[in-house]
Design a protein around this nucleic acid. Structure first.
Lengths: 340, 340
DNA sequence: CTGAAAGCGCTTACAG
DNA sequence: CTGAAAGCGCTTACAG
């Protein structure tokens, strides 16, 4: 049905076809032009074309400088690990940087319990690892220590731990600065009090947003409401109950746009004027929300850029033997909408 | 800073440490239990643990049955190739199936112009290719013929071409059936006329949806309006202009949910009652739309399952030498909302 | 500028 | 049940 394994042309076949040695073919493939005459080069290129030769990556990696692939692992309870827009963008940025440099991206999504027995741990087939890890702080630190124990460079997204002494680089967005920007914005508008709605299982990124918010607002939120952020109705019920007990806040801040959207629609359903009576602000702009009515005031994540920066840092690390910096922090952009 | 290349333990190191031959280590790693005594096995496992040994994939692939990785290539003009929720879900499904079978997923996004000179074409480092290709029909067919020319199995998503004689399997959703379902639904409600809004650069999937719609409605749409589906305002302006010329249709069908959402909001802004005066229906449910008000009536895509099925088909093909079937078509589910 | 030899770390095929 | 030899297709290191 197709060209099978035994019929695949090797470097020797190309060499014979072109009337040169295998070495010369290798030099042509690798663009070591200083070692190859123009005539030989042309004959080799013609032979490659004629035979449909493709270099076998495994053989190259074995003798050469190791695997030319970077692993991206997303450790998450959910099998639909890319469902998240933030993650998908980040992976796209990473893949593009690597591909441009002739590196490959090996993507895997892993349940926390599956990590220990995964091919990622048992096999050596990538030159370095990028990771996005969810779960409790303990679970996350466990994953990180396993990955770092592999003796390969690791880039960790959206995490805050001390990288000293580890072959580790943190790549994250300025969640604290973003929170501060929101706090300042609300303070300037004369908002009296803020209700913060947060995912039940909190994250360092979220904690930083919250810390920034308190700083910028020059006061802590009047309330902190943990919610099941994936469950739209649960978020709304929680807000309803909170308002029943405490009355309307001056503003609701959702730690991400899913929460903020749910809160916004709940307020509108209650007949509360937004932003007249209550202001609503989110975090991590999700393009699908951009056209919802009314448009949510939020912050734009540099997710794609985070992926790019991670790729660049990793390639540089593999080249030089060490990470230039171990903590890269990208700014987030304020995105004024109609709700806050 | 870390265990470097020269310090990586090999199968020989493990063999020496365990007091067995390299062969026995290999047998343990590969679970060929019939060839290894329990005692030897235990000593090998202990040695692996002690040395932190990981099998080198390149060496295994070179001597063994070839690369244990599948390539997923997304050929798209946009560098943010995963921005699309459909694609991201599909990739997640594919990755999970492969990882479970101890295969790896190599992801790349490629601009159409970059394909010819890509590592994908020049190197042999995956056992098979899955592809999602956008662009005009000619451009897409060109990509497909290049991929099939590689002499490796190819799984192609959401495309309709004749796979006869090719080592090719099509994996797609039942776009025609989905369109028919919508047509029947609107006909049953007594809708008099349908305006179809389609992406300017049309796709086989979209054409099939449209064909199904006409069948189910027992009449072609009264109008076909091509729009820039990525541009929210452009979609709205196009609809406004169309209504100015032709009056209100009985229903608007958006070929995808982005278009339908934009159309819906335009109608509401004009003060048109939805679904009272005009019904609105989309296609390819996007979770972020599920909670927009009013909820869009649409169809749910089995995107994650498409990825899973593709992975299963590819693994089976690599095992048996041929695809069981060359055209897999998954059903879509009708998702009634409040707009149609 | 070109080539013959050795070797990367595994697995295959075979002998005991 | 265990092991010594050969070889996968490249690149490295060296000789001409």
């Amino acid at each position: 049905m197709s060209a099978d394994r035994q019929s695949r042309a090797t470097i020797k076949d190309v060499a014979r076809e072109a009337g040169v040695s295998a070495m010369t073919v290798s030099n042509v493939i690798n663009n070591k032009t200083q070692f190859v005459g123009a005539a030989a080069r042309a004959r080799v290129e013609a032979a490659i074309e004629r035979l449909g030769y493709r270099r076998q990556a495994s053989a190259r990696n074995l003798r050469g400088a190791g695997p030319r692939s970077i692993g991206m692992v997303i450790v998450d309870e959910s099998p639909a690990f890319l469902a998240n827009f933030f993650t998908a963008q980040l992976v796209a940025g990473l893949a593009n940087v690597l591909n441009r440099a002739d590196w490959t991206l090996t993507l895997s999504g892993l349940h926390p319990d599956a990590l220990a027995s995964s091919g990622l741990m048992r096999n050596y087939d990538v030159g370095g690892l990028c990771a996005m890890v969810s779960g409790t702080r303990d679970a996350r630190l466990d994953v990180v220590s396993r990955l770092c124990g592999l003796g390969q460079p690791v880039v960790l997204f959206q995490e805050v731990i001390d990288p000293a002494g580890l072959d580790l680089c943190l790549v994250r967005q300025d969640d604290e600065g973003g929170g501060r920007r929101i706090g300042e914005h609300l303070a300037r508008l004369g908002v009296s009090s803020v209700l913060a709605m947060l995912p039940r299982q909190t994250w360092p990124a979220i904690e930083n947003r919250l810390a920034g918010l308190a700083q910028g607002f020059r006061a802590p939120p009047m309330g902190m409401l943990p919610v099941d952020h994936d469950d739209f109705s649960a978020v709304q019920e929680a807000l309803g109950a909170w308002i029943g007990a405490h009355g309307l806040p001056g503003a609701v801040w959702g730690a991400n746009d899913q929460i903020a959207s749910a809160a916004l629609l709940h307020l509108l359903d209650r007949g509360v004027a937004v932003p007249g009576t209550v202001r609503v602000v989110g975090f991590n702009d999700f393009p699908a929300h951009r056209h919802a009515r009314p448009r949510l005031t939020t912050l734009a994540s540099p997710a794609y850029e985070l992926g790019e920066r991670a790729g660049e840092a990793m390639l540089k690390r593999l080249e030089t033997g060490r990470f230039d910096a171990q903590d890269l922090c990208l700014p987030v952009a304020f995105l004024p909408g109609e709700t806050g």
